[in-house]
Design a protein around this nucleic acid. Structure first.
Lengths: 191, 191
DNA sequence: GGTCGTATAGTCGGTTCCGACTAATAGGGA
DNA sequence: TCCCTATTAGTCGGAACCGACTATACGACC
């Protein structure tokens, strides 16, 4: 099995939208923002148009019409292809089934935590915990908000997940800070 | 405060090593591998030399000698500068204190979970849970291993963190799969 | 004494990604 | 009526990133 032709997850988001109905690139971006998906996908004008082009090149999507309004440049409206639908589901399935190794910045930093010295490390972890607590509150508000509007839980399921992940990270940060303060996490000289 | 000149976390790893002692690029990579840091930092030959160059350009490190062995090309040995040490600590501190928004692939996939349909989604989540369980075991072995060799816990603290994060993800995956199977997570028609 | 695998050390060209910048229109207020 | 701002829509050049490829040395094994 050759590796997937497109790896950028923004492509997944765009494909997902086009399964609903045809759109032009800018509309895809604004629709994603409306639905709070801009926290899940990095939407950058440059990447947006690059990605649309890549999707078209591989025939996962195709232009269906070009609309001209006033004398502005034409907007090209795209729709998914049958190939696109298949790739979308296969890709999605794989992303859920198989964890891929990623390199989050926090893990990188933690691996050199020693260099901060015990005091500063504990301080920093406690500050992070406060930031995380705020984000969790934000997620809770967003969830209450949309479910309150009658939207099904499944539409915000990824927010439930990141909330859970943040909570775990917060717990770890607090616990580790406490261990440092209590001396139960010994600090070698080497740092 | 202008944004950091270098964002690639591999640069953080390299700087961290050079604080111990001067090295040439290839040695940095192999040292990181010896210490299991290749799961925390993406070490790619291309990025390695690019990053070293960038660090040198900004005077965070500087060449201290060029060694020639046999008739192979010269190896340039680098050391950190005082500026480099300062940037390292400041950067580290910030990375720990302030969570930065990242875009993990799993979150992207979960946000379209609906498209898989309840059966397949639950299947996929359960398979992921099994993979995660294996990784957790692996982390436990690595931890027992190195602590058994007398290394201080702090040297593997990032492994403790990712283990914790994986466990949280596993719990969520299992719980969500169960909710889907039991029907307590309703599946709208739209998908 | 040839050769086969592995460790050492790095190059290079191509994609991908980013974000500052451009530009037109609509709406609202002084 | 004129200006200001927000929204719509997209371009472009460069930085970052990747990974396949090159090439030498060394020990082991037959």
């Amino acid at each position: 099995m050759p590796p997937r032709k497109i790896r950028n997850t923004l492509a997944l988001a765009l494909l997902g939208l086009l399964l609903e109905r045809p759109m032009h690139p800018y509309e895809m971006a604004s629709t994603l923002r409306e639905r709070y998906k801009d926290t899940t996908f990095k939407i950058n004008p440059g990447s947006l148009y690059d990605t649309v082009e890549a999707l078209a090149k591989h025939r996962w999507i195709e232009p269906v019409e070009t609309v001209r309004e006033g004398n502005r440049p034409e907007r090209t409206v795209y729709a998914h292809t049958e190939l696109g639908r298949q790739e979308f589901v296969a890709w999605l399935d794989e992303l859920v089934r198989v964890p891929v190794t990623e390199y989050p910045k926090f893990v990188a930093a933690v691996s050199y935590l020693g260099a901060l010295g015990p005091e500063r490390a504990a301080d920093a972890l406690e500050e992070r915990a406060r930031h995380l607590a705020e984000r969790i509150e934000g997620a809770d508000t967003a969830l209450a908000d949309t479910v309150g509007k009658g939207a099904p839980r499944l539409f915000m399921i990824e927010v439930e997940f990141v909330r859970h992940a943040w909570q775990a990270e917060l717990d770890w940060a607090r616990r580790t800070a406490a261990e440092i303060r209590s001396g139960s996490l010994p600090w070698p000289e080497t740092f």
